[in-house]
Design a protein around this nucleic acid. Structure first.
Length: 420
RNA sequence: GGGGGAAUGUCCCGAGCGGCAAAGGGGGCGGACUGUAAAUCCGCUGGCUAAGCCUUCGUAGGUUCGAGUCCUACUUCCCCCA
């Protein structure tokens, strides 16, 4: 839904050229603000998990570009709203997290932003916000009187998200209805406290953002703006960020840089150019060159994508290390000692460890039952030899010259067993 | 408040005359083909000390040789009437 608007400001220019823009409440107005300089914008992130995943990367990149274009990024932690539990995830309201959990998550998530943004007190320095600061202490009566009266239920009822639910006679709980109000109030509060005039977010947030914009008008803030990014799916339609092992986490302690690199390396052909534009800072000319590659050459583009994307969150060194590990493993078929490792106790090795349990221990399969099935399907290998006997034992002899045993599931997943 | 329906393999959807480890999809994993891609085809998709054993159909009881299936109570959700 990207408009034909030709932006004058660098910020909008970059965002539109790279495919970040889905909808904007007022291109011209926002463009002018951005051009005038010191545009402050925020994006909300919820803290229901200890790490953000690739799904959150897109908004993070938008903040990063804002800063690079001379604006002030304000990542917002939903410390307050998370306490209520976001009900927008249709069915069962998810279980509420304790305040301790939320705080721990918050602290853990925070670190990711430091990779992308420069924090501080200067005009274009990022600042981490937390809506618990103003929401937690809200007084219901006061809130109703000062803020609640500005919400037009009539208007809210016409919003797509609400209208749909009503038409299909789906349940829409009171708390869910109110969530919008809290989120809208955030916008006003953040404008008053930090001068943000722009809220960005995924396209599913459009309604919430616009409600905030509306509330601002009624409560006398300067003109506010909304900008949303497209909902990201892979070319074949799957949601981003899900793998068998679970979400693609951004924190290194929840997903190794190597696995993260692999995630991007395995992108579909049709996604590579788009992902390069969205998830790397490479210049568009360079991306255009990579995007022009055909056939097997696209693999070069994928490697660039993987390395660049990994460098952003894990650092250049870790990214290149991951690239090298992959190169040795896949292109030379060599034993890369930098593959993920699992240490075994000496006694286990002497006693001999069943192949099946070895794979379970390595985390490549979930149970010996699954290992057994994989053996039947020819999916397990020890030191590159297909496992045919599920009763085989791993012992001293299997530790090659390097002192490790390579376990592989399929062609892509490898783990090394080492001696403790 | 009255009446009617629903909850199934802990990823999702969804069949299930009292013999059921439980149809079928989707998703996922593995194999073949390729380029660590897509598409296509094939296999697998409760656990274990594995020709056997154990645990699953909202929860708790009951009937029965035997219960996902029948009965009772409870919980949650949905619909209709008030």
């Amino acid at each position: 839904m990207t408009q034909d608007y030709a932006p004058k400001s660098e910020f909008l220019n970059v965002l539109m050229a790279r495919g970040f823009v889905h909808q904007c409440s007022d291109f011209a107005g926002l463009d002018e603000k951005a051009l005038a300089g010191s545009l402050a914008a925020y994006i909300g992130f919820d803290c229901t998990a200890a790490s953000l995943h690739v799904g959150s990367l897109l908004p993070i990149m938008m903040l990063a570009w804002l800063q690079r274009c001379g604006g002030r990024p304000l990542p917002l932690m939903g410390g307050g709203t998370t306490r209520v539990g976001d009900p927008s995830g249709k069915d069962e309201s998810r279980k509420l997290l304790t305040i301790e959990q939320i705080d721990a998550n918050k602290a853990s998530i925070r670190r990711v932003f430091e990779r992308f943004l420069t924090f501080g007190d200067g005009a274009t320095d990022a600042r981490m916000l937390d809506n618990a600061d103003w929401l937690a202490g809200l007084n219901y009566i006061e809130f109703l009187r000062d803020v609640g009266r500005h919400f037009s239920v009539n208007r809210m009822l016409t919003m797509d998200s609400v209208k749909l639910r009503l038409e299909r006679e789906h349940e829409l709980s009171f708390i869910e209805f109110n969530y919008m109000c809290l989120q809208a109030y955030d916008f006003v509060e953040i404008n008053r406290r930090y001068g943000a005039q722009l809220q960005m977010g995924g396209s599913d947030q459009w309604g919430n953002i616009v409600t905030g914009l509306d509330l601002g008008r009624r409560m006398g803030t300067p003109q506010l703006y909304a900008l949303t990014s497209p909902l990201l799916t892979t070319a074949s339609g799957a949601k981003m960020g899900k793998t068998a092992a679970g979400a693609v986490w951004l924190n290194a302690d929840m997903l190794t840089p190597y696995d993260y690199w692999q995630y991007w390396r395995n992108s579909e052909d049709a996604d590579v150019a788009r992902f390069l534009r969205l998830f790397t800072f490479l210049p568009l000319e360079e991306i255009a060159r990579l995007a022009a590659l055909q056939g097997a050459e696209i693999n070069e583009a994928k490697k660039t994508l993987a390395t660049e994307a990994t460098a952003l969150i894990h650092g250049r060194e870790a990214a290149e290390q991951a690239a090298e590990t992959a190169r040795a493993t896949f292109e030379e078929g060599a034993l890369a000692l930098s593959l993920p490792k699992i240490a075994l106790e000496a006694e286990e090795i002497v006693a001999g460890l069943g192949v099946l349990s070895a794979f379970v221990k390595a985390g490549l399969v979930a149970s010996t039952g699954e290992a057994r099935r994989q053996v039947k399907g020819g999916g397990l290998r020890v030191n590159d030899l297909v496992v045919t006997d599920e009763r085989a034992l791993l012992g001293e002899k299997d530790f090659e010259a390097d002192g490790v045993v390579k376990l592989s599931l399929g062609k892509k997943k490898h783990v090394l067993l080492t001696r403790a």
